[in-house]
């Protein structure tokens, strides 16, 4: 019994490097919850060092070609495979152009050396409340594709993340990719992160606005403020109502800062987070409106 986790070494495990998805799934089937998936390793290895997880089997999926997929198809959207790194996303032109919120979140996540290894799928599978990957994905209405030996299913990212370190994934299953719907032309999105004096966000926010004549589609997703990223539905309603966007921003920002459940933790108090929600919402929406 010792205070903290002063560990340099990892617990014992057996390393597997399957060459096909089927092989990986068979290993997962065989070892159940004794197995953990290794992609970038940034989360898993750090968790193992803290002894938060001590799997007996580690399955490295970097050798599986189909998980490297990074592809955009007009009308269908973007597919991001499980081993695609943040750095690869950063240099993918389509993301920079069409998926601004994701692009900005990717650029602001951790540091450039970590981004060379870290994967977006790993980022959402860790389900740590303060990270930057999930809010834009939820704002775009992205889904994860999950495979096991006998079935394939798709779950919206918003539901996939159930809470801190808790995701909708059964033993034997693996997240193979993220699917982001195509964004209509004229839609705008953006991401802000407030993390002065911290690597993690105190509050982060992804916003998506599609202002077609027939229907306003507005999504505001906040991270780091609660056990899992949340949408400010009431604030979205205000922004979707009749009238010039500019005149709605303040009341939406105020609403967002009031309607959500917000936690206090080591990074910030509840009060300060509510304040930041208001300011960041105001800033980001103004920027999006001005940018158009």
């Amino acid at each position: 019994m010792s205070f903290g986790s002063p560990y340099f070494t990892l617990p014992d495990f057996t390393y597997h490097k399957p060459k096909t998805l089927r092989e990986a799934l068979e290993l997962l089937e065989k070892y159940g919850d004794e197995a953990k998936i290794l992609a970038g390793g940034v989360g898993l290895i750090a968790f193992m060092k803290e002894r938060l997880v001590s799997p007996s089997h580690v399955i490295d999926i970097k050798g599986i070609p189909e998980l490297k997929k990074l592809e955009y198809r007009k009308g269908e959207g973007l597919v991001i495979g499980a081993t695609v790194t943040f750095s690869e996303l950063e240099s993918y032109q389509v993301i920079r152009e069409k998926y601004r919120a994701l692009y900005q979140a990717v650029k602001l996540a951790s540091d450039s050396i970590i981004r060379n290894r870290a994967t977006l799928v790993g980022n959402i599978c860790e389900a740590i409340p303060w990270v930057d990957g999930p809010p834009p994905l939820i704002a775009y209405g992205a889904e994860v594709e999950i495979k096991s030996l006998d079935k394939v299913r798709r779950v919206p990212v918003a539901e996939f993340i159930k809470g801190p370190v808790e995701i909708d994934l059964e033993p034997g299953e693996i997240v193979t990719s993220i699917h982001i719907p195509d964004v209509p032309s004229g839609a705008r999105s953006g991401f802000v992160k407030f993390n002065v004096g911290s690597e993690f966000a105190l509050v982060n926010l992804a916003a998506y606005l599609s202002l077609n004549e027939e229907k306003k589609d507005v999504r505001l997703v906040y991270g780091a403020i609660s056990p899992k990223p949340v949408r400010a539905l009431e604030a979205e309603k205000i922004l979707s109502s009749e009238g010039d966007m500019r005149t709605l921003i303040i009341s939406a920002a105020v609403k967002a800062s009031e309607e959500l459940e917000v936690i206090s933790d080591v990074l910030a108090s509840e009060d300060f987070r509510r304040h930041l929600i208001k300011i960041l919402t105001m800033n980001l929406l103004t920027e999006l409106v001005e940018g158009g």
Partner: peptide, 13 residues
């Protein structure tokens, strides 16, 4: 000042 400079007329307080 923020609201003024960004021309965000306030609807509700």
């Amino acid at each position: 000042k923020f609201i003024e400079s960004k021309k965000l007329a306030e609807v509700r307080a």
